[in-house]
Simulated scan of single mutants.
Amino acid sequence: MKFAFKPSASLNSLVLAGLLATVGAGAMAQTPPAAPAGSPPVAGKSAGPHEGRMGRHDPAKMQAMIAKHQAELKAKLKLTPAQEGAWTSYTAAMQPPAHGARPTPEQRAEFDKLTTPQRIDKMKEMRTQRMAEMNAAMDKRGEATKTFYAVLSPEQQKTFDTEHKKHGPRGGHRGHGGPAPQKG
């Protein structure tokens, strides 16, 4: 049997080998199936990347984390009795908004009757409404924060600024990367 070097055949073989290696590596990188509900966690395995982060999918855990953070902030601020009313107003305004109700079967049936362009327009309308609601909630929180901040002493404002940087957007709780490095 003669084996002759053919550049195109050799290139095809390399491409095929590369594709097979990629598929094989991809298959090996797949996550294992989830354990049945109620089964204990496997030793040495950590929870998923989104579990435990502010109790995102569990409203009770999220509420507990918010309450804990607010209690810590209140202790650090050393509020006076005269500031308690402003604190109560501030913390009430900072509560997360309730999630919208799921569509009823009747609403879903009406949506299913729409043509594709009509559904696109309806989804755009719903998205616009949701964004307006989110913006209004953010504005309300911003104004509540400014109002509360105005009743704080300069020392309390400095403490509030430090704590707000830790917990605000792009602050110390950065998701996958953990806390931001502290300057000092």
Rank of each mutant, 00 (worst) to 15 (best):
K146F: 01
T128Y: 00
E163G: 02
R127V: 08
S153K: 00
R127W: 05
E133D: 14
A150N: 03
F160M: 09
Q129L: 10
K165I: 05
E155D: 13
P154Q: 03
T159A: 07
E133I: 08
A132M: 06
R130T: 13
A137Y: 04
T147Q: 10
N135C: 12
R127L: 07
A144T: 08
K124P: 04
A137S: 10
R130L: 14
E125C: 03
F160G: 00
M126R: 10
T145Y: 11
G142P: 12
T159S: 05
N135I: 10
P154F: 03
F160N: 02
A132P: 01
A150E: 02
S153I: 03
E163H: 06
A136R: 10
H164Y: 14
L152P: 04
M138F: 12
T159Q: 00
A136C: 13
H164E: 13
A132Q: 15
D139Q: 15
E143M: 11
S153H: 00
T162Q: 12
M131A: 08
Q129S: 09
A144E: 04
V151A: 09
T128I: 13
M134I: 05
F148D: 11
P154T: 02
T147D: 08
Q129E: 09
Q157C: 07
A136D: 13
N135Y: 03
Q129T: 07
H164W: 15
M134K: 05
E143G: 13
M131P: 03
S153W: 00
